[in-house]
Design a protein around this nucleic acid. Sequence first.
DNA 1: AGCTAATAGTTGTTTTTGTAACTAACAAGG
DNA 2: CCTTGTTAGTTACAAAAACAACTATTAGCT
Lengths: 147, 147
Amino acid sequence: MPAFDLTEFLPYLLTRAAEESSADFARIYKDRYGLLRTEWRVLFHLGQLGEMTATDIGQASKIHKTKISRSVAALYRRRYVVKTQSAKDRRREFLKLSAQGQRVFLDLSDIAKTYNAHLLQEFSAQEQRVLIESLRKLLGQGGAQGR
Amino acid sequence: MPAFDLTEFLPYLLTRAAEESSADFARIYKDRYGLLRTEWRVLFHLGQLGEMTATDIGQASKIHKTKISRSVAALYRRRYVVKTQSAKDRRREFLKLSAQGQRVFLDLSDIAKTYNAHLLQEFSAQEQRVLIESLRKLLGQGGAQGR
DNA sequence: AGCTAATAGTTGTTTTTGTAACTAACAAGG
DNA sequence: CCTTGTTAGTTACAAAAACAACTATTAGCT
């Protein structure tokens, strides 16, 4: 019986590839703006998708609501985010980036773009396409995701 | 200026794909054997590569030595791992799976194999090849990895 | 209206991780 | 051998994540 080969196991490969490909970028947003990983992710969703509620962010990002709550609080404290109470439902709060938050988002986007190009240059155009498409496919429906 | 697109950013895609593709499998090794993520990883390396020291595991897995230390301690407590002191260098300790640890490894390997096949069935043979090869390439040299 | 259930978001507590500092053992040069 | 430096592995403490319980508000039903 052939031993199971770790280096064919997708969750393992993905986890390691994620860790290693994220490390350098993480150091940048951490050193430059003191952001945590989840904070960066929330900032990014707000930057890309515009005004939305915490629940919306959770749906788009699949980040747990307690992490979003704390990240939003941190971003708010730093004045990267502004809040608007919903008129018709006082539980809800619309969130968007402040001008300052927008600047941070754009600065980091720029860096991310360069960083991404650097990562992708290892691959042919066709490999890039397959890789990105495959990852996207893996997203929406990870495994059996049911819970 | 076009906004940066998160869904083309490899570290983001990889992180989410890793999280989502790992979740179901994680629940299995957790529920069935009470293993933590890092413990599972260490168990797997020992199962696949045979007797080795903690440092060796660190080199093969890129897991930090403190996490390995704690995981090995946990696996040892559960009698999944046995230790042999090195004769010529008393700092070193050879680790390998016990018969029981081996059984756990094989059981989980089986599940992993099925689980992996399930994940991969989304993809054509060619996509599978490109995906796995790309991830492997991303490994050894994640970004600039230098530290 | 009044009761129950659901939703938005927060807070408290426990686990896990990250970082640094530490002990023990070995190595190499004088 | 003795000092200095290096390596293997552990431990202590601080930061972050996971999980559960909570408050406030709205929705739906009778």
